[in-house]
Nucleic acid binder design. Structure first.
Length: 649
RNA sequence: GCUCGCGUAGCUCAGUGGUAGAGCGCGUCCUUGGUAAGGACGAGGUCACGGGUUCAAGCCCCGUCGCGAGCUCCA
């Protein structure tokens, strides 16, 4: 037993301290300024409270506001302060969990009556009092019996205690009157929380299990300074303004109507134009990359989905069966398709295949229907009628890797090179509900993972997130305001080839089983367009803009001259319109800006005499450019051809 | 699907039991303008739907449908 321990600091220096020294004491030893700024400490890579005694030689880093880990400590402490306030106002409330999350924190409570917005205001006021009291956060380690005694009136905490392993340290934290079962760490005292705000309350299942009771969750956000808090609140505001449901209405892109049903998009002409351009683009591109296009029916005999394993594995997501068509045999029923894979497999199986043909890549922009639970629907981003840019690649095992790289390259070309979107990859492993043996899953997962590893691609892992027939690489797109959406996906499948008895004749003149790769690049037109709306806030690149040019005659007597220019633009394939309404020029320019038209071509007497237009480029304000009509046409065509992200330039 | 909230003119929203409102948009007319809202007049409502309470319901109660915030689930 030794009384002295070594503390290794990030600058490489080593200091001797008596055992039981706290990080705060180390900080004080370094300097009073650091001690004042200190919030927590990183001890051998683990974040600790400042005042937790250190009993052995460690490496130690003092955390202040400047380290990102400190923000989690702040937010988790804010959750405790929230619970402290709630317990004061609602002594009978049972407490669940209260973690830090991205941009904030939450805490779950079991209460008689859900919280109202007024309740939140009261709770927030009480939190400020708890902060004012500056209660220290006091850590204490207890044994199981003691923990059960302390939380005897808190069934949710008792349940958690029961699950703790015998070798686990049970710690409790107190801040003033409130004691919580918690691993920590926390700020030194409640007074260190300054800039926070409660945002909203909503129900959340206890332990995330929908079979269990629903708790009331309060969400909040917390930051180290006012500027960060304000910036975050502005970001939320910004997100609201970019909401595709709002912009979709303003720009007349789409609607969802009760008469049609939830989760089904009516694409108005302007929205349809965007989908049309996206579709033309991806179809041209995949043809260039060696795919073939196919078209398959929307409904099929139900039997097909039994064969594929969709029924019953995927039944919850499928619409119920429809009766047989007139004249069909007894017992035949039909289903609308939730996926295209079985049909593409049948296209493959329609004749004998040779290894010389592989890989066979079948692509189809297809409508499928999934019976998503009503509560999950969300504008265009989560719908029941989906338009997938689907494809299935049938290849040999040797070809898997190259095909995956081909898909990743296509995804990068479309998402990043063309739309400027940032994304990251997730590797998703076998789910609980699956078909096929673990041996085959091992092979499939290894193949996908190997491809990622060999190319040194960085990826995250989503355990159990795979499709029921195979593991996936999902591509998550980060939008302009930092939120992530899943779009593109690559799924490796050994199961359906088996179930559909797919074969090819190998070089050895013997039958072999191909593997199947399912992939989508946009994912679905609905989600992708919804995402683009939010990403560009409705100010689309010229090539997908529903209305590329709006020609505006200054006076009525120039309407026909404007119409001539409009006609020229249309003839060369530019989407143009004329606004010759009897409104002021100011009014019409404003309208063009609001509708996010990339170019307004204003035509006055001077322009007509000189064969020019006065071009106003979206978002550039008063600055206008007078140019010959020819030059303008050429400029717009170049923008379209190059798929420029912005109409300037 | 679950919890809570919401549903009033084409849109955004006022309206706390006693004769349905505003702004924008739309129509007509006047105005003919040089880069983000010119003026006048007018049309437009089964207050989501179905029940109930009340002398009286947009408003209170119940149910259904839809939407929203989350949870769960997913492209």
């Amino acid at each position: 037993m030794t009384n002295s321990i070594s503390i290794n600091l990030p600058d490489g220096s080593v200091h001797e301290f008596p055992a039981g020294t706290t990080a705060l004491q180390v900080a004080e030893n370094i300097g009073a300024g650091l001690a004042r700024a200190a919030l927590a400490a990183k001890v051998d890579g683990e974040v600790w409270d400042l005042e937790r005694p250190i009993s052995e030689t460690v490496s130690l880093e003092i955390l202040t506001e400047r380290q990102p880990e400190a923000l989690d400590v702040l937010r988790h402490s804010a959750a405790h302060i929230l619970a402290t306030a709630v317990r004061q106002l609602y002594p009978e409330a049972n407490i669940g969990f209260g973690p830090a999350i991205e941009d904030g924190f939450y805490y779950d409570f079991e209460v008689e009556r859900p919280f109202t917005p007024e309740d939140l205001a009261t709770i927030e006021d009480r939190m400020r009092e708890v902060v004012k009291e500056n209660f220290p956060f006091v850590r204490e380690e207890v044994d199981r019996d003691e923990a059960e005694r302390r939380f005897k009136d808190d069934p949710l905490k008792l349940e958690r205690i029961e699950e703790l392993g015998d070798d686990e340290v049970i710690s409790v934290y107190a801040d003033g009157p409130f004691v919580d079962l918690c691993r920590g760490p926390h700020l030194p005292a409640t007074g260190r929380l300054k800039h926070f705000k409660l945002l909203h309350a909503a129900g959340a299942y206890w332990r995330g299990d929908e079979r269990r009771q629903m708790l009331q969750r309060i969400y909040g956000t917390a930051w180290f300074n006012k500027k960060d808090l304000d910036q975050y609140l502005t970001r939320l505001e910004e997100a609201r303004k970019r909401d595709h449901r709002v912009i979709g209405k303003q720009l007349d892109l789409f609607s969802i109507q009760e008469d049609v049903g939830p989760g089904q998009i009516l694409w108005h002409p302007r929205g349809a134009t965007i989908q049309f351009e996206l579709r033309r683009f991806i179809e041209d591109e995949v043809l260039r990359r060696g795919y073939d296009l196919v078209y398959t029916p929307h409904i099929t005999k139900e039997q097909l989905f039994f064969r594929s394993g969709h029924l019953p594995m995927y039944e919850d997501d499928q619409f119920p069966a429809m009766a047989a068509a007139a004249g069909d045999a007894e017992g035949v029923r039909y289903r609308v398709k939730p996926m295209n894979c079985p049909m593409h497999a049948l296209v493959y199986a329609s004749r004998q295949r040779s290894y010389r043909e592989l890989p066979i890549r079948l692509a189809e922009v297809a409508n499928v229907y999934r019976n998503e639970r009503s509560g999950t629907l969300h504008g265009m981003l989560r719908v029941r009628g989906l338009t997938m840019d689907d494809a299935h690649i049938f290849c040999t095992e040797d070809q898997i890797e190259e095909e995956i790289y081909g898909i990743l390259d296509l995804a990068d070309f479309v998402l990043n090179k063309t739309f400027g979107l940032e994304y990251r990859l997730d590797f998703s492993t076998r789910p609980e509900k699956k078909i096929g043996s673990d041996d085959v899953w091992d092979i499939a997962e290894k193949a996908l993972l190997g491809a990622l590893e060999r190319k040194n691609i960085t990826y995250g892992v989503d355990e159990g997130g795979g499709a029921f027939y195979g593991p996936k690489i999902d591509i998550k797109i980060r939008d302009a305001i930092g939120r992530e959406w899943q779009g593109a996906t690559i799924q490796l499948d050994y199961q359906l080839p088996e179930r559909f008895g797919l074969e090819y004749v190998g070089r050895d003149n013997k039958p072999h089983r191909p593997v199947m790769i399912h992939r989508a690049i946009y994912g679905t037109m609905e989600r992708f367009v919804g995402m683009l709306i939010e990403h560009f806030a409705g100010a689309f690149p010229v090539w997908i803009s529903p209305e590329q040019v709006r020609v505006i005659p200054i006076t009525d007597d120039l309407a026909s001259a404007a119409s001539d220019i409009h006609g020229r633009l249309r003839t060369v394939g530019i989407r143009s319109s004329v606004d010759d309404r009897s409104e002021t020029l100011n009014y019409r320019v404003r309208d063009g800006e609001i509708m996010k038209v990339p170019y307004m071509a204003v035509v006055g007497k001077r322009e007509v005499e000189n064969g020019t237009v006065a071009v106003r480029v979206r978002g550039t304000g008063k600055k206008q450019e007078i140019m010959p009509v020819d030059a303008f046409v050429e400029r717009v065509l170049r923008q379209i051809r190059e798929r420029s992200l912005s109409p300037t330039g």
